[in-house]
Amino acid sequence: MLFIPLLFALPLITAFVIPILGKIYKPLVWIVTTVVSFILFIIALYGVAVTQEIPMSVYKMGNWPPPLGIVMAFDSFSAFMVLMISIIVFTTSLFSLRYLSRFTGQWKFYTLFMLMTAGMMGISITGDLFNMFVFLEIAAISSYALVAFGIEGEELEASFKYMVMGEIGGLTFLLAIALIYAKTSTLNLADISNSMQVIRGTTFFWMIIGMMLFAFSIKAGLVPFHTWAPDAYPAAPAPISSL
């Protein structure tokens, strides 16, 4: 199942190639971004086709056996998420050319854009709790920077507000990971699901669930923690608001 790590490795590599290309020849940056996101779309379609035959395919990073190494799990839900993300990324990069013509430093935009894509792809396919945190932070940090992309007063203020809210969420998630690791001694999501059956219903269990819910509701902008959303969306460049 070689296509699974490609889903996040390809945008990650592209993100670091783009600054070099931006130095050589500026219009190349947009072409490369669009081509790479189209390739991602093709890979995602292939992944959907694979899940029709094999419902659950697992890729072991570095060929370590599952409880020890990091795994990438690809089932029908992550196939759906990956397909949605790749469609949005492809169309966004297609239409971002006109919008971005009034900004300088476009290659910076595309670098952050590809990093954010890599983070979101990683969240959808990872099978490891800490790896999920890392990808969450990759996506989050690049989106904070993208909200502040046009450096006017409003955009910086919206970015700071989003950063404060988002980081409280992210660090609460890290705290929940630490508590889960203390209880189950594993980070593999499937293993955790088995181990959690033992402590189900205890106060500790509900505390972890509450922390996770708090962290993800900040990230998603659910109602008590939504105050960053109405400022961040208009401040961000329009192609990013769609993500």
Binding site: G153, P230, D231
Partner: peptide, 27 residues
């Protein structure tokens, strides 16, 4: 690092570190 960069940029725009005086936004 990103947060301090944004804070520095905010200081250059508004000439203050006080969040009560930085309120162009409504949310």
């Amino acid at each position: 690092a990103l947060m301090l960069t944004v804070i520095l940029r905010i200081y250059n725009r508004y000439k203050t570190f006080d969040i009560a005086e930085i309120r162009k936004l409504k949310g």
